Amino acid sequence: MENKVWLITGTSKGFGYVWAEAALKRGDKVAATARNIESLAALTALYGDAVLPIALDVNNREACFLAVEKVIEKFGKLDILINNAGFGHFGYVEEISENEARQQIETNVFGSLWMIQAVLPIMRNQKSGHILQVSSIGGVMAFPSLGIYHASKWAVEGLCESLNQEVAQFGIKTTLIEPAAYATEWATASASHSQPIAVYDGLREVMIANRGNMPVGDPNATASAILKLIESENPPLRLFLGKLPLLMIEPTYNKRLETWKEWKEVSENAQ
């Protein structure tokens, strides 16, 4: 089994921590990033020199490139990037402030873009590498109260679908990770919220109740899926995590196809 070098952003908790530990248990090396480097102390205490802790705010493009340089200086190569840093913003479209919108897009979209751009020259020269972009079930369908979050995830879906077609010629693989609800802090401590407008309170209550009834997955159960993915010779462009996504996505896509077909004559007359 070939040992690999991973760079994982947002490693202090949740998926990032689980996947970093899975890589380290596999015998690999991990460059683990977080805004607060102290949050990585548990990983370094357990795994020592196999971990390279890096303080990183992905909103800083220069810092992203410097982080990749540190990985190469320490480990000499980079096999896997997992773009995991990001957060969810809750707010109905009318409620979202300019600052809230910009923060969501800056972190989830531009932060991912900067990291991808930073690793590509390394992976091109190696003629190998795998970029895993954390998206969401919210990257392929949308719900009320998460409009700007969906905008960010639909953006990285398009970005990485193009990326996949551009860099496959260099031996670089691309995969979008699309989880449903998991027992992380994504919807609680890690989330941000707009100032509510009262006219949406009725729908807000329904959505909160629906989220409370939604089954959540165990983040630890995702480790084996990520390991299978990075060991695959032909990994998929998209991978759901959990039982829920396909159950929700299939009727959504069927409805889209039905609508396009229903309006087919109108569409064709517009040729």
Rank of each mutant, 00 (worst) to 15 (best):
G217E: 03
A221Q: 12
V206A: 10
H193A: 07
R238F: 07
A225S: 14
L239S: 08
L203V: 12
R211M: 15
Q195I: 14
T222E: 00
S190T: 04
K228M: 10
S190Q: 10
L239W: 04
L227W: 09
D201N: 15
A221T: 10
A223I: 08
L229V: 02
G212Y: 01
L227G: 00
V216L: 06
L237P: 00
D201K: 12
E233C: 01
A225V: 13
N210W: 13
I230Y: 04
E231P: 06
P215E: 02
P196I: 05
N210F: 14
H193S: 10
A221H: 03
V216E: 09
M214H: 06
V199I: 13
Q195D: 11
E231K: 09
I208H: 08
N210P: 05
A198P: 02
V199R: 12
T188V: 07
K228C: 07
N213Q: 15
P196H: 05
A225L: 14
S232K: 07
A209R: 10
S224T: 13
S224Y: 05
A221L: 02
L239F: 03
E205Y: 06
T222K: 05
T222D: 05
N213Y: 07
R211W: 14
A189E: 11
D218V: 06
I230D: 06
R211I: 11
R211Y: 15
A209L: 03
M207Q: 08
R238L: 04
V206I: 15
I197H: 11
E185K: 12
L203N: 01
E185P: 09
A209C: 06
L237C: 05
D201E: 14
I208Q: 12
P196G: 05
V199L: 14
G202C: 08
A189L: 08
A187R: 12
P235Q: 01
P235F: 08
N213M: 14
A223D: 02
P215C: 04
M214G: 00
L227R: 06
A189G: 02
